[in-house]
């Protein structure tokens, strides 16, 4: 396509965009609402993911050792644990320290611990964190096989629940967004149909004198893309403003939310990408019906 032709198509697209006034406005509004929700979901999803990762990384496996474990064996185990895949950190708590922690925590009932100093019932323990929560169970099973290990515990249920919630949220989001996107596409295709109808005779003449299909489609294509892009730009600006002003720098469950800088790229790509797709799809679906006739 020649630049001159392209310029004319862009001009035509802007003209009919303005001439369609209210329909253009309605289309943009629907796209904006859709993409606003998409944007909210994306920001929420990114932060939930972030939160989940932070929580997951705090999921500990507690390893309690047999009472007869020697210092040498402990040393060897510590390095063995560090060698394991997905082990993020290894912390050793000797039995004395464990008792001290217990006393401190339950200071009100100090009498419970009388005499325990001489005959400490607590075992030595390792606490390890993983960087892959889905691997926790497997890791625990492996460690359980080791000779000096008495008992292994980990927060299996919490991890599973967290993963479940994230999955459900993602699915709900998907359904809502698809529904809204279809509505927006439908409205855009109706707006473009108005343009096509208002220029019906001209389009028929174009076909008669031998314009190619792409030549005929181009202005509607551009009009659709324009609606999609404006419909993405509005919610984008609102979301960025609100995020920067009210969300960034706050904490959820004492964990910090993501900075705007991190969420900006996925937000831009999704909103403008979806806006373009909705706009172009809407315009192509209406011109297709017309060209077939």
């Amino acid at each position: 396509m020649k630049p001159r032709t392209f310029r004319r198509h862009v001009r035509d697209a802007f003209r009919s965009f303005l001439r369609n006034g209210w329909m253009s406005f309605a289309s943009i509004a629907t796209v904006s609402i859709t993409l606003f929700l998409v944007g909210v979901f994306i920001l929420a999803a990114l932060n939930i993911d972030h939160l989940a990762k932070q929580t997951e990384s705090q999921v500990e496996i507690s390893i309690y050792l047999k009472m007869d474990t020697t210092q040498d064996a402990i040393q060897i185990m510590a390095s063995d644990l560090k060698q394991l895949p997905h082990v993020h950190s290894v912390r050793f708590v000797p039995r004395e320290e464990g008792l001290a922690w217990l006393k401190e925590t339950y200071a009100d009932e100090a009498d419970l611990f009388v005499g325990l100093d001489d005959d400490n019932p607590l075992p030595d323990a390792f606490f390890i964190k993983t960087d892959a929560p889905s691997q926790t169970a497997e890791l625990a099973q492996t460690i359980k096989q080791w000779p000096q290990v008495e008992k292994v515990r980990y927060a299996q249920e919490e991890v599973a629940k967290l993963l479940e919630i994230t999955t459900v949220i993602r699915q709900v989001m998907l359904v809502v967004v698809i529904g809204l996107a279809l509505t927006a596409t439908f409205l855009i295709s109706n707006t473009i149909k108005l343009t096509i109808l208002s220029r019906r005779e001209e389009v028929e003449l174009m076909r008669l004198v031998g314009a190619s299909k792409w030549y005929i489609r181009m202005p509607y294509f551009i009009e659709g893309a324009l609606i999609g892009l404006i419909g993405a730009g509005l919610p984008f600006m609102v979301l960025v403003y609100v995020y920067q002003r009210y969300v960034e720098g706050t904490e959820i469950l004492s964990m910090s939310v993501l900075t705007l800088q991190i969420v900006l790229v996925p937000l831009v790509v999704t909103l403008f990408g979806l806006g373009l797709i909705i706009g172009i799809w809407g315009s192509l679906s209406s011109i297709r019906k017309f060209l077939r006739a």
Partner: peptide, 27 residues
């Protein structure tokens, strides 16, 4: 080239623009 009884010209275009139309749309 097709010619109709009702001419089918584009009213918003001048005479020369109407003729140029057929050349412009084939670039």
């Amino acid at each position: 080239g097709v010619v109709f009884q009702d001419y089918r010209l584009i009213d918003r275009l001048t005479v020369e623009e109407n003729i140029a139309f057929a050349l412009e749309v084939i670039e």
